[in-house]
Amino acid sequence: MATHTPDGPPQDTVRSLLAELWRDRLQPSRPGSGRETPTGRLIHGALFLTATLSAFVTLGIVLVLIFETVEFFREVPFIDFFGSTEWSALFAEKQFGVWALVWGTGMIALIGLAVAIPLGLMAAIFLSEYSPPRLRAIVKPILEILAGVPTVVFGYFALVSVSPVIRDIFGEDVGIYNALSAGIVVGLMIVPIIASLSEDAMRAVPRSLREGAYALGSTRMEVSLRVVLPAAFSGVVASIILAASRAVGETMAVTIAGGGNPQFGVNPLEAVQTMTAMIVQLSLGDTPTTSIEFKVLFAVAMTLFVLTLAMNIVAQWVSQRFREEYE
């Protein structure tokens, strides 16, 4: 008997139609999946190529960076690049001490982490241990908006809002462009990374651990700090390293707000220049591709690439090596 559904033709009509359409395609199948027609093999091959594309992208990045970096070190000795803290690539008297840029990057990343670790960790603890589910459902998406705001917008915010406040606090002799305002917005940018990833790690801690601690008379804070946080430690550390790597690779906000002054000082109220900001500065000018300025671009990018890659690998290693396994 034909079965009728409210919005469609009788089902067995559909079936016979399908059988009609598919008669040529449906052939007796061999046991196991993976029977493929010549067309199927072609598609298989094409999909394989798209999957290997990502490997070629990595290869491309490494080759592009190495090629120009080698060119650079043919003209500038290794020791001038890694053995000096003076950077003046655009002056007549060129100096390529990359430590000035690495230091600028590090300082902004450190300020960012100093802002983001307390905010992000506390937010993660609140969301995972204290918050009722309904509040979490509201707060988490709002925090994630912060992660979706384009970095150029954060740059604008740093320049127009944060910098004036810093000048109000520390006096007028502080420049509009300073490491502190750039660092603060970078910190704001990476709060969601720490909060979100740490919260995931904390929520993965089994409930029985918390209940055991509560049964011994612990307060919520003691459970959060002495039971959940140590149990989720690998995930938390990995989230912080990932956030740091993001802060190191961050470009637009530090270019806009950090100023363009490569220097090796400890004062966060002065302008600095990060590796990324330097790359932007050199890219904006019309640098001829044979010039030393163009080549040093890639040497700096190589340093940045190695640094962030190392941080990402360490983060993966930490989260796998030090993961506490329960159950």
């Binding site: 960076l65 090629f67 120009e68 990402n312 993966q316």
Partner: peptide, 27 residues
């Protein structure tokens, strides 16, 4: 290897993709 590579690519700073594009696509 592809999977690890993809997660590492997601962590590469965007400006480095720009330099890749500059050399490969533009030049």
């Amino acid at each position: 290897m592809i999977q690890v590579n993809i997660s590492n690519l997601a962590g590469v700073p965007s400006i480095i993709y720009g330099l890749l594009g500059l050399q490969v696509f533009v030049r």
